[in-house]
Amino acid sequence: MTAATSDRPQTCGIAPAPPILSIRDASLRFGSRTLWSQLNLTVRSGEFVAVLGPNGAGKTSLLRAILGTQPLTAGSIELLGAPVRRGHRLVGYVPQQRLADRGTPLRARDFVGLGLDGHRFGPPLPSRTRRQTIDQMLDTIDATSFGTRRIGELSGGEQQRLRVGQALIGNPKLLLCDEPLISLDLHQQRAVSTLIDASRRTGDRAVVMITHDINPVLDVVDTVVYLAAGQALTGTVDQVLTSAVLSELYQTPVDVIRARGRILVVGLPDTALEGHEAPPENPPDGLR
């Protein structure tokens, strides 16, 4: 992955496509605490948005607001030109990782299949198109070899690829991922982020991904949303992740260092550091 491969629709010469997601002047308050305010974001087809910020900054709440399960305090969110509503068929969701119980009575391919027709009533009738669609998705997420194994027996990385496949099989216009790379080893991080990156290029689709670490997606991200200190900053990596901007945001000197194609943020206040490098809750691949 190199920076050259990331196309940025907003800089193209052609007329921009209608936005997939449009957030205007959005704020979220819990009681007296403002999680974020004045959030403005327009996401177009093919765009990759990373949501950054310390723990408790309201990153997951932002995804919930887009999913329509968390009402905003102020502002509006529109999905494909209409106000968000719960259970939009054109939104794929990969929630924060929880390893499936060993005994979970489901095979990998059936888990992916839930994303296709799990919301429909009626008994699951076997059908050829359904089987082929699932086979294709398993191929895309490189899961054919373990398609008939139980999900509980699979590694964290394998399960995470299945979650992405489950979200993508419904052919969503918008893919929302909550820390999809957490507790994966570098190899699996690369596999999952490549998968997510590829999904926005092949389909008419945009990606919004929460991540505590920008580096695994540094080369593919178009827009950064930085949530902290009750505010919300949006812009490119170069616009948002600078010493000046973050120092201003946190009201304390913060250094953003770029070295060997990675970004390091030094000097975050303790409250913001909390959970920035959270220890993995699940054993990484290979340790299962």
């Binding site: 939009h88 969701y93 990969v94 979970t104 839930l114 919301h119």
Partner: peptide
């Protein structure tokens, strides 16, 4: 299997 994702799907 996964209440969170199912709810996001409108279940």
């Amino acid at each position: 299997i996964d209440a969170q994702v199912a709810e996001a799907r409108g279940v």
